[in-house]
């Protein structure tokens, strides 16, 4: 049965997509505005991009953010994969309910609570706040998202493959590395990407857990935005949107290609 767009569905899709994309689109267009007044069009210009590249504070913050995101995403994906494996494959173990709760709760926990509680923890341990504490915080919520992504792939993955590997002489640990890991690799990649963007994106938790000298890009943007809309922030946003969209589109194309080549063999 072939389906066509009905009148109602076309309308709601068009309006929905317009709602989702118009604000972003306007933001991008106005980043090329020559006028300093952000809502008055003064012709095309790329001057805000060049002034952005000369702004050392932004560049510094960007570098901090990328380092934090890279390290925390990597560790979070590792821990998240272990957690997912434990949730899906380890069967019953003591404290499983608590474990499941701890994995899922951060997904919906308001960021202010997570941020506040982590900050108070770091203080009671007497830790100096800075990049390290932000990374620790980001690993914690990143691993929960990562484990959800990986476990959804593990659930649909036939456990008889692992049993076959064991039957052919692998230990369970060997079976994990030689069979399970390659099969769930795309999900692990997706989990890393998710943890990376979440870390890149985070304002609230980073604000709580950072200390002097460690300012991430969202924190920097936030403090400028509170003072109002500036063309430089528009330019910076455009760059970030472009980078992330490109990354996501490339990743999904790569995923699609992998799927096609898998179905062809």
């Amino acid at each position: 049965m072939t389906r066509r767009f009905s009148w109602f569905n076309t309308t709601s899709l068009t309006l929905g997509m317009a709602f989702l994309y118009l604000p972003i689109l306007l933001l991008i267009i106005y980043s090329f505005n020559a006028s300093k007044l952000v809502t008055v069009w003064g012709g095309w210009s790329t001057k805000w991009y060049s002034s952005l590249l000369e702004n050392e504070a932004f560049l510094e913050a960007a570098w901090v953010t990328i380092r934090v995101a890279f390290i925390s995403a990597t560790v979070a994906t590792f821990l998240g994969t272990l957690a997912a494996y434990a949730l899906v494959r380890a069967g019953k173990f003591r404290g499983r309910t608590l474990f499941t709760g701890m994995v899922y709760a951060p997904l919906v926990m308001p960021e202010v609570i997570t941020g506040l509680s982590l900050l108070l923890l770091f203080i009671s341990f007497g830790m100096d706040r800075g990049i390290t504490t932000i990374i620790l915080a980001h690993i914690t919520f990143g691993m929960c998202f990562a484990s959800v992504v990986v476990s959804s792939r593990l659930v649909s993955f036939d456990s008889s493959l692992e049993e076959a590997a064991c039957d052919l002489g692998c230990t369970p640990v060997q079976a994990f590395f030689s069979v399970t890991l390659p099969v769930i690799a795309p999900a692990i990649a997706a989990a890393w990407l998710l943890a990376f963007t979440l870390s890149l994106d985070d304002l609230v938790i980073a604000s709580f857990t950072s200390g002097p000298g460690a300012t991430t890009l969202p924190m920097k943007i936030y403090s400028s935005v509170r003072l109002g809309v500036t063309p430089e922030i528009n330019a910076l946003s455009t760059i970030m949107i472009a980078v992330v969209s490109l990354g996501v589109i490339l990743a999904s194309l790569a995923g699609k290609r992998a799927e096609i080549s898998r179905s062809e063999t």
Binding site: P23, I24, L26, L27, Y30, V38, T39, L200, D201, L203, P218, I221, Y222, V225, G228, V229, I233, N234, S237, M240, I241, V244, S245
Partner: peptide, 12 residues
């Protein structure tokens, strides 16, 4: 894409 940026987009 960044949550903060999407909220910011509405200010303008």
């Amino acid at each position: 894409t960044s949550f903060l940026i999407r909220v910011y987009a509405w200010i303008g």
